[in-house]
Design a protein around this nucleic acid. Sequence first.
DNA 1: CGATATTAGTTAGCATAGCTAACTATATTC
DNA 2: GAATATAGTTAGCTATGCTAACTAATATCG
Lengths: 153, 153
Amino acid sequence: MTKVKETKFASRRETIAAADRLHSAAIHLLRRVRKQDEASGVGPAQLSALSVLVFSGSKTFGKLAAAEQVKPPTMSRVVASLRRRRLIEITIDLHDARCKHIQATSKGTRLLQQGRKRRIRYLADHLKTLTTSELSKLNATVDILDRLLRDWR
Amino acid sequence: MTKVKETKFASRRETIAAADRLHSAAIHLLRRVRKQDEASGVGPAQLSALSVLVFSGSKTFGKLAAAEQVKPPTMSRVVASLRRRRLIEITIDLHDARCKHIQATSKGTRLLQQGRKRRIRYLADHLKTLTTSELSKLNATVDILDRLLRDWR
DNA sequence: CGATATTAGTTAGCATAGCTAACTATATTC
DNA sequence: GAATATAGTTAGCTATGCTAACTAATATCG
């Protein structure tokens, strides 16, 4: 028995080709889905930040900026816009007056969930042409991607 | 025999759940990959337009705007920036002086392909932790998505 | 205790990217 | 040849990203 090791991983060439195709498909998919968000009248950065607040609860300013992979001045303006629209509220930390806690208002939560519903419904309207077999392949792949994203870097 | 029809398609609930997960994974994946493009010193709209020109050849202004799903004034500025950087060239149509044909210069082609290489290499560096079995699942799913995107709407 | 350093966030100012409304210039149509 | 349609531009708004320089609060250390 000379074969002691299975080729568990793909060649570099194949990996690159897969990366390329995945990248392109993701770009084109999102470009279409994102158009649905315009109906909310709120920009993408604001929706994305609001989404973090709605799904992971209250966050300090700094943690929100980190979660959005954005520099503090950018988040500062995004938060100010959200506040002007009464989609979030800000409270000052009792123990450290420098820290601000940001949380979604009920109006913000409502707006986000409606937008999300619209976006997902739109995507689902296209996915419904898939067979159950195709859909389960899709789900399996998203499992893989989720793991990849969790362990990123 | 009462069962006359197979349930070829998934329930609405399952479809919505899949759409939601796909959407979220695509957002997070692209957010990471897009960071790699900053190294090129050219913004995302410009890179995307340049990419169309490099891979599908010369385009008239209007077709480029349509391909990028963007309004004419937006494309006007994008093209002007690309031109200032000598990444594209513009020629006037001989038969219709209103029409402008936009094409990538060799500098533009080079810049795009380097950026693309960097981006794809980065993504591939993460995909290489996948087994061949996982990679082929991924490829199968991208096939499905490509078809979906081609027949969109 | 008080000077200094660190941390949290803001302000100012710049570039890119998206839009609409209003414009110019060229072609087409009647 | 006058009216209309088409291709693109200009002006001006909003939003999102950045860096550099700032304020204010806390922590550290002599």
